[in-house]
């Protein structure tokens, strides 16, 4: 099977810290995909280009409320509608690894691709007049100048909870695939038929069950002696469990 590179994001670990968003910005604005223009950076309506944004959702009713963070960048869809609609072929999907890229030199800035993306993951840079988006840090992952263990997307390196994994989801041995399999990975909007490569792992609750036996398996116990204000400790074997 072809290589299909993707991010796997674990919502069981994501604490919504935005590190993936800013580190992405830092790497990419000064990298091959940059600069990522910020308009009005110190004014009333700052408006910047970001390849990755972390959204916050509340789910359920109080007090059974869950808080979900959703870091979202291009899903590098297998059936990428953005590729199909592009009139200039500026947007293309790489055969060798499935990364969807925009060639800024060809893009005319018609924005059509962004309409066709159901995830809201394309970012128009109105200063350059071209469409931009997550490149899966293509200038890191194949960059032989970097130490081997740093040939990963910036957001993955940064993530303080290690909620992000990068890898080939077509390779069943890859860490990414194993995580999808074991963590019941899912895709966003599966019904729209884009077949996104990025996956998310759901929350998994740890529950502890305590048996009555365990409560009674005491090594020592405090008992009330005579008056209720006085206490004594009874140790181990000789406990006639009260």
């Amino acid at each position: 099977m072809d290589t299909r590179l993707a991010l796997v994001i674990d919502q069981n670990k994501c604490v919504g810290c935005h590190a993936c968003a800013t580190n992405c910005k830092a790497w990419n604005t000064a990298g091959a995909a940059g600069p990522l223009t910020d308009r009005d950076p110190y004014g009333k309506a700052p408006r910047g280009v970001w390849f990755n944004r972390v959204q916050t959702y509340e789910v359920g009713q109080y007090p059974n409320t869950e808080v979900h963070y959703l870091p979202k960048s291009c899903m590098h869809c297998k059936d990428a509608p953005c590729v199909k609609v592009c009139p200039t072929s500026a947007t293309y999907k790489r055969k060798e690894d499935g990364i969807v890229l925009v060639d800024y030199d060809q893009c005319i800035g018609c924005k059509y691709c962004s309409w066709a993306c159901p995830y809201g993951c394309r970012e128009y840079d109105d200063y350059d007049g071209v469409m931009k988006k997550c490149t899966l840090c293509i200038d890191r992952i194949y960059n032989e100048k970097l130490p081997a263990d740093e040939r990963k997307p910036a957001c993955v390196l940064a993530c303080p909870t290690k909620a992000r994994t990068f890898g080939d989801i077509n390779d069943p041995q890859s860490e990414a695939s194993v995580k999808i399999l074991e963590g019941l990975g899912f895709k966003l909007l599966p019904e729209v038929g884009t077949s996104p490569s990025n996956h998310y792992l759901p929350k998994r609750k740890v529950k502890i069950r305590i048996d009555e036996d365990e409560i009674l398996a005491r090594k020592h116990v405090i008992v009330v002696t005579e008056k209720s204000s006085s206490y004594a400790e009874v140790i181990a074997e000789d406990i006639a469990v009260p």
């Binding site: 959204q55 916050t56 959702y57 509340e58 869950e66 959703l70 962004s114 970012e123 599966p190």
Partner: peptide, 25 residues
Amino acid sequence: EKNAIGVNNPSIKLMDMGTSYAHYN
């Protein structure tokens, strides 16, 4: 929204869209 964010619950509220300000999307 359920499938958009992958949570099966009837009550989903967007609290923050990632930046405080409007952006392209």
